[in-house]
Design a binder for these strands. Sequence first.
RNA 1: GGAGAGGUCGCAUAGUGGACUAGUGCGCUCGCCUGGAACGCGAGUAGGGUGUCACAGCCCUCGAGGGUUCGAAUCCCUCCCUCUCCGCCA
Length: 470
Amino acid sequence: MLDIALIREKPDWVKERLARLNDAEAVARIDTIVALDKQRRALLTEAEALQAARNKLNKNVGALRGSKKLDEAGKAVQAAAAVQAIDAGDYDAAARYMTGETVASGTGAADSLDTLMAALRALGERVETLNDEVKGVEAQLDEAMFWLPNMPHDSVPVFPSDEHNKPWPAEGQMPEFDFQPRPHWELGPALGIIDFERGVKLAGSRGYVLKGWGARLQRALISFFLDMAREKGFEELYVPYFVKEDMMFGAGQFPKFRDVVYFDADADVYMLPTAEVAITNLHRDEILDEAQLPLYYVAHTPCFRREKMSAGRDVRGIKRLHQFEKVEMYKFTTPETSYAELEALVEAASDICRALKIPFRRLEIVTGDLGFSASKKYDVEMYAPGCNEWLEVSSCSNTEDFQARRSNIKYRGGESKRPQFVHTLNGSGLATPRVIIAILENYQQADGSVRIPDVLRPYLGGAEVISARG
RNA sequence: GGAGAGGUCGCAUAGUGGACUAGUGCGCUCGCCUGGAACGCGAGUAGGGUGUCACAGCCCUCGAGGGUUCGAAUCCCUCCCUCUCCGCCA
């Protein structure tokens, strides 16, 4: 969510930023938002003035009805005058007649008090009508605001699409083979550690089963990832794998990416497409102390994605799946430190690649490929020689206060008066089974066996090689 | 899943139709007192919206949403959550 006040004050500046995303729809939305905001405030002024009048008159009517100074005839006279004032729109005068502060002249009919009640009822109904109008406009405004993507940081290269994402120089030793390296979709089944046929039998397209060393390798990786993060100060979390709808809005998945998630209509909950959704909302509706920041969290969860948009793409192997495992690192920070924290986050992901001794590179994401929530984003890609691809194993983003606004997460600074929004960052550290692809393809040997990276051996009982013999 | 009790300010509690402009205690902050502290005394102590140069002011929020009423923390309905007991269960 962007700041409505910023849009109100500098619509053209915001448009220019959004234009960098190559998202014409987002830019066009600004005019709609400005108009709705204006309409909302005009209605609100009117509604609140009337509401204030109603509150005051309702309070005074009790005083009039219960007045000991006035007899019935006297009350009728005051009531009649009050009704006249209300009809004329002079609510202050009406209030004074009702308290007896202004003594009315003339006569009052016997039913003047009833007439006054009716006038108050009518006033109440007008307030309700106006409030409904305000709510209607607010709903439209919220809808428009929720569809608006985040603005790119000034440092993000301005290009229209992912073809222009800027790779940094690769790090690590590129593997050299004296044989033709095989892709993982051959190695896995040959080793008996990936079973595609039975996976599809169980779950349909993109289903897979990891067996034996495949399953153990994944479990080892997850433990290793969590340990790496913990050593860097991330607190480990175990979170729900499904969340309520508001959480999906809070993290920026909804409304735009509604069709990528699995939904339990009966319980009205959504399966996580990433742990980021759960962790973002961990501190929803909270005001944190500045002294608590930065907060570092890490969680391992499965991730469920329908991959509707990419039906037919990457159907081979275990690169793009409906279900995969990911260790997610997450930070809540102050605005001052979030960009330094982003660099540290990418380094944390890179350190895992270094420890596994797999060649990797950082990809600087351009404006046209930033996604919905990020202000700035880096991907980390591992090289896979078998399929000759760079595999995205991590994506690290600073969303600035975009998610914090949606989830209402603030902090109170030392001296500062008003709570302000935190910045949130997320980065995979890392995702599997993609890392399994990289291990199989980088560590394969001529006989089809695969060496186990040194750092994982302690997690696998000291084993050094995975071979078809088991 | 069944039966019952409950959800009010950071925490604890009061509040059964208008005086609630939500009281009190604790906690916290500031001041006075003190050589310094404790005690005591005094003041302050939510969030959001609107508005303003900034204040002020006004509006909303007592789990959520509806309803009754001139007026709802308070009465009615629906839902959510928590607790106790029972049943089932890794």
